[in-house]
Simulated scan of single mutants.
Amino acid sequence: MSERGLDQDGTIAREGALDRVPAAFTSVVDAARTRISKAFDRARLHSAYIYGSIPRGTAAPGVSDLDLQLALHSEPTEADRADAKAIETALDHAFPQIDGVGILLTSTRALLSDLERHDAGFFVACLCTPLLGPDLAERLPRYRPTTLLARETNGDLALALQRWHTRVAEAATDAERQTLSRGVGRRIVRTGFTLIMSRWGGWTSDLNESAELFGCYYPERVEQMRIAATVGRTPSADPAVLSTLIDDLGPWLAAEYTAVHGEKAPRP
């Protein structure tokens, strides 16, 4: 891998690998593989992937969560979601070194579709590490840090803002607000980075680096972006923090993103 998260040909390098998993998390990954194999047989599961800080080798025990993507042979059912939820709960309870588990369920048809080529397809090919089954990345293109990739990965922040406002209004506990703040922080930082990605000419998933790179182009907003990076790692229940991100930084970022890259293709 060359500088700025790129391979020698200038395409975005796959960022994780199983041999980068920190020792404290190897038992977690092994257990995830076992539980997924038991809950989803080969007729149902095409492949499974791990993503986030654990395969990047930057996970911190007691702080980092476990993120998994399952590619199914057909569209996810309610039974599939129930099985995934059971795996999430079991792993979260069994391993104190992880703070939460999230499993995404997607059909191979969707992941390989033209509509998702520069969104979910990019996610699997570059941000996910194979855990079980054949690797869908072999059927996807190599990606470059272009405005097309920026638009299709994060060009729908305005829709996320609408959902976040609803969740803020419905949040009744500090735990609910913390969970929301983590997701909001991460999404805003990633959107801030992909806003400037094509100008910078590279890729990173590191929240701190993303915030600082964003600040090189938008110094007047860097302090807010640093707050987003902080709560993306260490969630906050403070309503003022959520308001800063959802009511101020978020709307500005969505408008700037549309002006620079355009809006993401609508999904059904």
Rank of each mutant, 00 (worst) to 15 (best):
T129Q: 06
S113D: 10
Y49P: 07
G62F: 11
A110G: 03
L70Q: 05
S53M: 01
D30A: 15
E78L: 15
H73N: 13
A71D: 01
H73V: 14
G62S: 11
A60F: 08
P141G: 11
D41F: 14
G100S: 03
T147Q: 13
I98L: 08
L127F: 03
P134E: 05
S74N: 12
R56N: 01
L91W: 05
R35C: 06
I103Y: 06
I50V: 14
S113G: 13
T77C: 02
A82S: 12
L127H: 01
T89C: 07
A84H: 02
L105A: 04
K85E: 13
A90P: 08
A43I: 07
D41C: 12
L66M: 15
H93A: 14
D80F: 01
A86G: 13
R109D: 14
Q69R: 09
R117W: 09
A86I: 05
A48G: 05
D99Q: 15
R44A: 12
L131N: 03
D119R: 14
F122N: 09
I36P: 06
Q69S: 12
A43R: 15
R81D: 08
C128I: 05
A84V: 01
C128W: 02
R109G: 14
P141I: 09
T106S: 09
L70M: 04
L149Q: 04
A43P: 02
A39V: 11
D30V: 15
E116N: 13
G100Y: 01
P61D: 05
E88T: 01
L136Y: 00
G100F: 05
P134C: 11
T129L: 08
A125H: 07
K38G: 07
L45Q: 06
I87D: 00
A120V: 14
L66V: 05
G121L: 05
R33W: 03
S47D: 06
V63R: 15
Y49I: 02
A84D: 00
D83S: 15
F95T: 06
H73P: 07
A84S: 03
T34N: 11
F25M: 12
I54V: 14
L148I: 13
K85Q: 12
A125E: 09
A59W: 00
A84I: 01
T34R: 14
L72P: 07
S27D: 15
V29C: 01
G52K: 00
I50H: 00
P61Q: 09
E75P: 01
L140T: 10
F40N: 00
P141S: 15
S64N: 12
I36G: 05
L104K: 05
T129G: 04
G102M: 07
E138T: 09
L70F: 02
Y51G: 06
L149A: 11
P76F: 06
